[in-house]
Design a protein around this nucleic acid. Structure first.
Lengths: 340, 340
DNA sequence: CTGTTAGCGCGTTCAT
DNA sequence: ATGAACGCGCTAACAG
């Protein structure tokens, strides 16, 4: 793992331009303290020699890394990769390098926070949509870098996120407005991080909506599953097995909702005639599968987070708590309850 | 963007352990040329002081970057993010940092190859599932680093990929076996990169399969669309508008297939009774939507590519052309043609 | 086995 | 406006 040896260095440029390395350096970076003439010359030579400063040397001399770490748990899921995409776009425009750390299982996650492979390599760490534990938070502090959360809240850190409670209400209220009274909830929970804001907010929305409508929250109508389509399918099977099945289902995510729909159809029931289903996220495939859901601007959340981060790094003033709006998108998976 | 000043350096460790910086350095890296006793001591002190070597300094002194760049066009799509996930896993295990470059539009792509922001920052560049032009290839060469392709072939570079032609055949042959004779193809093309291996191989599979079955390839049965569900939906609308619509559709990807299915259903037709649909990829949602498709191991391709890259970087012998197998997964979107 | 001496390539004072 | 000298933190070469 060795770099090819002979790369043109600052010295080469300086010599060729007939100036000292110091002057060459100034010409290439600061626009200050160099005569226009010499700057021109230096830049010309640099261009001609195809000179590129050694980032290691530059950073060693200057301090700072111009790099940020993105710590993301489930990159394969659309929500996460879309946030990352949004961030990368803004960060690369600002000439910050993006270091990707995929902490998909407990082991890699433990490694990240325990060994801190990113230590001294980045100016900031972005926690992408997951809840960090108190212990992890402490490890992060030892890195002494800026920390920020994208796509969810982490107490004590700046964040950009939706209002999960409000999003949940938009979904459940829609079902209530349609006239449903027996509404089930497919709640998602990540075993690695109980208490993550999404789950909490979306679940609370369900209870508060039913309460306001004067409806009881029956245990038999709430099923908690792990994230994912198959989990949703299984959860739905549980719900259908109850003596008095729901006429509508509120799922914490579109994938779970799609799983539920599969189960419903395989049971010989129709969506939405027999059972309505609503999700959250507005996954690209929700449109294709005619799923009613709550839209949230995912990529934009990433971009917004990155912008916030840039300001923090530059010491500029900025909001440290941004909540982006969501809205209901009615498609074909919801309808009034069957009059039968 | 500045690093906090007082970090413990190698010198601190050395002093505290009563040895020279050089010895400390050796103790911390090489396992060679240091007495067990002193190594113990140095390591203990390092641990106690929570010492971490400055990566910039280390890399400056040693040459090499221990970093690789992942250049990926459409991170939001499952296929791409899954490949990245597979690579990251292997690379981080090998203590290589992953630099992410998302070249999602022409501008960012041009920037990457023209400005070469990764220059001197990485030991290797991984081209994730897209075709680079001759000009881009030349720019890449000036970086003088190892280049490798994941999830598709790029002439002249080592790669890991499926056999698109074979995958396509598995899909089309399935339809033929079911008895279909009017089989349409929804071909995908990325305007930014015509001639990408996926499109070519998957399209050729269609022609060869029909030819072998003694069937003509009708222009009216081939629709070329951009990648994506909505494009697939529109393409399908075109096909349905033909005087003699197909009884089965072969789509180049699952997303396109799902779009086609939506159009078919909205037209009042049933899948698979009236029209069968088969895709390629085995997207996680294909299972949920009961889509017959051709499975390819995506994450594994990423992992395999990373392993290959590691060997290349270490100068170890390795295959430079790996083709991973695919297989048909029959679900509910395909059936024999309607006898009517 | 260990300490000394040089760089690695660039920023940045401090003079001039 | 420019040049000389030093330092960033660590590794490598050479002695001892």
């Amino acid at each position: 793992v060795t770099q090819p040896s002979k790369a043109v260095g600052l010295i080469d440029v300086a010599r060729r331009a007939g100036v000292s390395p110091a002057t060459a350096s100034r010409a290439l970076s600061d626009a200050y303290g160099v005569s226009p003439a010499t700057r021109e010359r230096v830049l010309a030579v640099a261009q001609e020699l195809d000179y590129v400063a050694s980032p290691e040397a530059t950073r060693l001399a200057r301090g700072g890394t111009d790099r940020v770490a993105l710590v993301v748990p489930h990159l394969e899921r659309w929500f996460f990769s879309a946030i990352v995409a949004g961030m990368e776009s803004v960060l690369s425009d600002a000439d910050l390098d993006v270091l990707l750390y995929h902490v998909d299982d407990l082991e890699s996650r433990r490694t990240f926070f325990h060994e801190l492979p990113a230590r001294r390599k980045v100016d900031a760490v972005v926690v992408v949509a997951f809840a960090i534990s108190e212990a992890e938070r402490q490890r992060l502090e030892t890195m002494r870098v800026t920390v920020i959360a994208a796509g969810g809240q982490n107490e004590g850190y700046p964040f950009v996120s939706i209002d999960d409670r409000k999003a949940g209400r938009q979904a459940v209220d829609h079902l209530l407005t349609l006239g449903h009274r027996r509404i089930a909830m497919l709640s998602t929970v990540d075993p690695d991080e109980p208490g993550w804001s999404h789950t909490a907010g979306r679940a609370e929305a369900y209870r508060s909506a039913l309460a306001e409508a004067g409806l009881p929250v029956e245990d038999g109508l709430v099923e908690t599953v792990e994230w994912g389509g198959n989990s949703g399918a299984q959860g739905m099977a549980q719900l259908l097995a109850r003596r008095n099945p729901p006429t509508a289902v509120y799922a914490h995510s579109d994938e779970v909702a799609l799983g539920a729909i599969r189960t419903i159809r395989r049971a010989g029931l129709r969506v939405p005639q027999d059972i309505s289903v609503v999700g959250i996220d507005d996954h690209p495939l929700a449109d294709l599968t005619d799923l009613t859901t709550v839209h949230q601007p995912v990529r934009a959340q990433g971009a917004r987070t990155a912008e916030m981060l840039l300001k923090l790094l530059r010491g500029e003033p900025t909001d440290t708590a941004v909540v982006v709006p969501t809205h209901l998108v009615v498609r074909g998976s919801t309808a009034p309850p069957n009059a039968s």
